[in-house]
């Protein structure tokens, strides 16, 4: 496949997801509602508990990261979910494209959307709680966002794989599993407070490292030696694994007939 066709297929999916997103007012509302509720409640709680400025920043970073990852991963999962819901999955697997076009195309929309959510939350955090996202500098912020996007890609593709493996009944199960994993990533606490066994899991999650690196600029000593490099390496590893799992799931769905079953 030529580069032109590669980009075109990704662009086709990007355009499709963007159109679907723009058409659904309800999605739009949902997209903003939970992130805003998150930042407000965490911010207010930190005021009630009289946290120091650094501590408040710590938990706000956590809740913002969670929102960004959630919005972005949901969009990545739309790569198959939109078609599963409307029972049109077979058409795109009849076309000469690969799953990379589906996931990358959705990821692009996910990044744009979650970036918009991030800007909004940052503004809200600054206005309501005096929290400044740019305090660590542009580079640190960019790395933090990249970490969120990569984590979202891995999570979203894993959800796609689970759904094509178990059918649409597995939807709820898929969300639950991946969200449980995310909560372990030290969203609201340093992983040093976790029991050893659970900390080991948290250490296997890339987001943990990106959070750690970003928070080190708010006065929390880094728990790892090279958090960003480690986070990137882990992300690459999981991205490859998730991609492979999705590929295998599609392969299996073609064999078992699930692909057809999800299209009628």
């Amino acid at each position: 496949m030529s580069w032109r066709n590669e980009l075109l297929a990704v662009w086709a999916v990007t355009l499709r997801n963007a159109l679907m997103g723009a058409r659904n007012v309800f999605f739009f509302f949902e997209l903003l509602f939970w992130p805003i509720v998150g930042v407000l409640s965490i911010g207010l709680m930190s005021r009630f508990l009289e946290l120091t400025e650094a501590q408040a920043s710590f938990v706000l970073v956590g809740t913002i990261a969670l929102s960004v990852v959630n919005v972005c991963q949901l969009e990545v999962a739309y790569a198959v979910l939109l078609d599963v819901w409307s029972k049109s999955l077979k058409h795109q697997f009849l076309a000469p494209i690969g799953i990379r076009h589906l996931t990358l195309g959705s990821w692009v929309v996910g990044m744009v959307r979650s970036l918009a959510v991030f800007v909004l939350l940052a503004a809200l955090g600054r206005w309501a709680f005096g929290f400044h996202v740019l305090q660590p500098g542009w580079f640190a912020l960019a790395m933090f966002l990249l970490g969120c996007f990569l984590t979202a890609w891995v999570v979203g593709v894993a959800v796609c794989a689970l759904i094509t493996l178990f059918g649409n009944r597995a939807e709820a199960f898929a969300w639950a599993t991946v969200n449980m994993v995310l909560v372990l990533a030290g969203i609201y606490y340093p992983i040093s407070v976790l029991p050893d066994s659970i900390a080991a899991i948290a250490r296997a999650i890339p987001l943990t490292y990106f959070l750690d690196a970003y928070r080190s600029h708010y006065g929390f000593a880094s728990e790892f030696r090279a958090p960003i490099a480690t986070g990137l390496a882990l992300s690459a590893l999981y991205a490859a694994l998730a991609h492979w799992a999705f590929l295998a799931a599609i392969h299996r769905a073609r064999r078992t007939g699930l692909l057809l079953k999800m299209s009628e």
Binding site: A12, R16, L19, M20, R23, S86, A95, S263, E264
Partner: peptide, 15 residues
Amino acid sequence: SFLWSLRVAEIIAFY
């Protein structure tokens, strides 16, 4: 079956 909220021309163009 196709994506519900896409319009006719958009569906054909997508594929």
